[in-house]
Simulated assay, not measured.
Amino acid sequence: MGGNFLGGAVALLYFLMFQLCGVTLAACFLNKERRYTQMILGSAAGSVLLMWLPSLWAFLFSFSITAHVLALISLLLLTVGAVFLKRPKLLPNDFPGKHKAFCRAERTLLLPLGLWLLFVFLVLHSFRYQNGEIWSSQCTYGDMSMHLGFITSIADQKTFPPMYSILPGVKLSYPFLSDSISSSLYLLGAPLRFAYVLPMLFAGAQVFFGAHLFWQRWLRDKAKTALAEILFFLNGGFGFAYFFPNLQNGTDNFTRIFTSFYETPTNLVDQNIRWVNVIVDMLIPQRATLFGWAVLFPLLYVLYRAVYEHCERYFIIAGIFAGGLVMIHTHSFLAFGLICGVWLCFAL
């Protein structure tokens, strides 16, 4: 599976450097936002920069170590320049006191935190190595094989834009930046599983906490925000009711949820139940959706502030990162465009 401890450490430091610089840039250009808001938006910005900066340099130097070193240098220059010009207040005063007050005032963050912990558990158990093979869970069956192939082939072939590994000579017709972020870590020496999982865990946090920021700002009510998160992320209908009958005669009917292939409450074909759960059927297997939403929800928060709260300079930030969304997840870019169109009509 490639990689070693040293390579994993180098890849982790490289990844965290982008996250740190993203948060620092958020502190520079979103200095009126609360500290935890800057962290969420900055983390999303760091992931976007890790997807795009190596890719831009790869047009000149292929997808190589050289391109990644130049991407890191570009990031550091951008961050140092922003800090010099904006001089943000990076360290809060009276941290212990503010920390306690924050925990009392923002208890609603426990819900996105719980959703993220559930997501982490499912991601870490979605596949495993056994006898030199990779075994996937039923929700990642097919998808994981495709994405692992994209991740390794982008790093190994170094051709940019990348070729489709199954059809040599044919350019990859897919928003591949959701995989190139892991290819960068794999190229730097990280083990494949580490390179695959680490960006997903951060992207999951960006999705859940970014959605919380947007809905809280839009709905202006903690209870409505919590209800929106529950209905959106824990969707799937009442298919689980079919697994409770006959429990008095044994648990086989219930345990088939965990042991049978696609015998889940959201995929009961015999009962004509074909719901899709957002976390299990979209965010975990479909990396483009995961990384697209990790950008989309923070973008909606920034755009809402620009449109309805008259923070005009936020339009520039939203425009830059919306442009980068196209090659991360095209459908998220389309959704963002539709929402922009509706808000434009209201503004007119």
Rank of each mutant, 00 (worst) to 15 (best):
Y174V: 04
Y36K: 02
W275F: 14
V342K: 00
H212L: 01
V295A: 12
Q286W: 10
L91K: 11
L6C: 05
L299H: 01
T66Q: 12
Y36N: 07
R256W: 03
G204R: 02
S43W: 12
K158P: 02
A306E: 07
L60D: 01
L49Q: 02
T330E: 05
F127Q: 10
L16C: 06
L227F: 15
G324D: 06
E309D: 14
L283I: 07
I339N: 04
W218T: 02
A71V: 08
G149E: 13
G81R: 12
V120S: 09
G7K: 02
N249K: 09
L76V: 15
S180F: 04
N235G: 06
A211Q: 06
K224E: 11
G341P: 01
P92A: 07
L70R: 02
A203S: 10
A11S: 14
R128T: 08
C28S: 04
C103Q: 14
L13S: 11
I40D: 04
F291R: 06
G3D: 09
A11E: 10
A44C: 12
E229P: 07
C311H: 14
C345Y: 13
V197A: 03
V342Q: 02
F160L: 09
K158D: 05
L30N: 05
N93F: 13
S62L: 07
I279A: 01
N246A: 08
G142F: 06
P175A: 03
A226Y: 04
T152G: 08
Y301N: 09
L124S: 07
F240W: 13
K89Y: 13
T140N: 04
A228S: 14
W135L: 15
I316L: 13
Y14F: 15
Q38C: 12
A9K: 11
F254M: 14
T159E: 08
A223V: 11
S43N: 12
W135Q: 13
C21E: 07
A101G: 08
V307M: 05
L49N: 06
K100L: 15
F321M: 03
L234E: 06
C345T: 12
Y36L: 06
P92K: 04
F61S: 09
G46K: 11
A205P: 01
I316A: 14
L213F: 09
L201D: 10
G169A: 01
F238N: 11
F194V: 10
I316P: 00
G237T: 07
F315I: 02
L90P: 07
F261Q: 08
S182Q: 03
L231E: 06
Q130H: 10
F63V: 06
Q286Y: 11
